[in-house]
């Protein structure tokens, strides 16, 4: 193992479930408001995963009141309380950017259930 990978290993989380682009996930995010901390859930389709080690991130897209919302999370961030895989999707490519142009049922049909 390279020295850099070894250093990053200290900061990696081991409690992250396996998930892929096309899966629908619920990301529970810790949010600090002043002194109080609460947990907010962000549910949507994983558009992509990128990067390795501590630099890995993933993008989740959801449609909120008719508006597309995308959030990019650092995979190993301590601000992520937990990630839950709701449904596993079968996508035919690694980057699902085409979902941005689709709405409702059309978007759903492109990702079949595994």
């Amino acid at each position: 193992m390279g020295v850099m990978a070894d250093i990053e290993k200290d900061y990696l989380r081991t409690d992250i479930p396996e998930f892929r682009p096309g899966d629908t996930v619920v990301v529970n995010v810790r949010i600090k408001e002043g002194d109080k901390e609460r947990i907010q859930a962000f549910e949507g389709v994983v558009l992509r995963r990128r990067g390795g080690g501590t630099r890995a991130t993933f993008t989740v897209r959801k449609v909120s009141y008719g508006t597309g919302v995308e959030r990019i999370f650092p995979l190993h961030s301590p601000y992520i309380e937990s990630i839950k895989v709701k449904t596993e999707g079968r996508a035919r490519r690694a980057r699902l950017y085409f979902l941005r142009g689709l709405k409702g049922k059309a978007a759903k049909q492109k990702i079949k259930k595994r």
């Binding site: 020295v3 850099m4 250093i7 990053e8 900061y11 961030s77 301590p78 601000y79």
Partner: peptide, 20 residues
């Protein structure tokens, strides 16, 4: 210099250069 990466300290994402 060994390289750059980022680490998490107190929940914050910190860009670092690793030097031996």
């Amino acid at each position: 210099k060994l390289g750059m990466t980022r680490i998490f300290i107190d929940g914050l994402d910190v860009p670092v250069t690793v030097i031996k």
